[in-house]
Amino acid sequence: MPSLPELQETFAAALLAPAPDGALPFVVADRIAPAERLAVYRHNVRHNFREALRAVYAVVDRLVGARFFDYAADRYTREHPSTSGDIHAFGARFADFLAAFAPAAGLPYLPDVARLEWAMHEVFHAAAPPPFPLERLAALPAAAHAALCFTPSPACRLLASRWPVHRLWALNQPGVAWDETFDLGAGGVTLLVRRSGFEVELEPLPGAEFALLDRLAGGQALAAALEAVGTSAPDFDLAAFLQRHLLTATLCDFSPG
């Protein structure tokens, strides 16, 4: 007679393994064979994980097709098991998995599509940012600005890709007709993923704006970030940058540094 930990370990392994042999001796055999009974759980568990991934990675699913997606999802579930009773937390490493998944090697943009979809999933469930404390900032002397460090909104993500993944995402939404002029090789994108109300939006940003935002979101002080990004370019307007990202709370707080 197995102890409870032994039984649960054996049963859990049997649910995801290619063959469920280990758990069968523990199951009551009557008019229905233990393997047939266990098959209900094996099906349910696989189905639930596939559908949880499909709910987040709908565009990946569309790009590769349901059979390929299910195959990848089953492999992912075995290699990167769920570790939370909250199924919404499952799938965080799917992009990295796809990047190393040999059958998907012919689709080099696929991991970035997955990164984008996970970012959108996180942003959808994130806390809304507090309004930026503009009055507190205005009270600081100008000499203090160089050392400012900003806090990024919990409902924003920055994502850079060698591929136009935002277009690929938009073209693969339900009911959207394919654009024959779309060119996958047309160049990459630097994206701000943010929530507006309850909708998740994708906004391509110019390279310098993205790079500066990325450094500020990473905690670098304003002057150091500006110097590193080299935004002395005549078309870069720091005042407009700050006004926009503080008013929309892409950056939602600051410390004096």
């Binding site: 930990p5 639930n48 098991p81 769920s82 199924i87």
Partner: peptide
Amino acid sequence: SWGAVPGRHLNDLLPLPYTEEALAV
């Protein structure tokens, strides 16, 4: 029901063996 073993969650409602050990847990 149960759904988790060390290092892995099955995210399903799995049946228990109805034993004194399972009742205590």
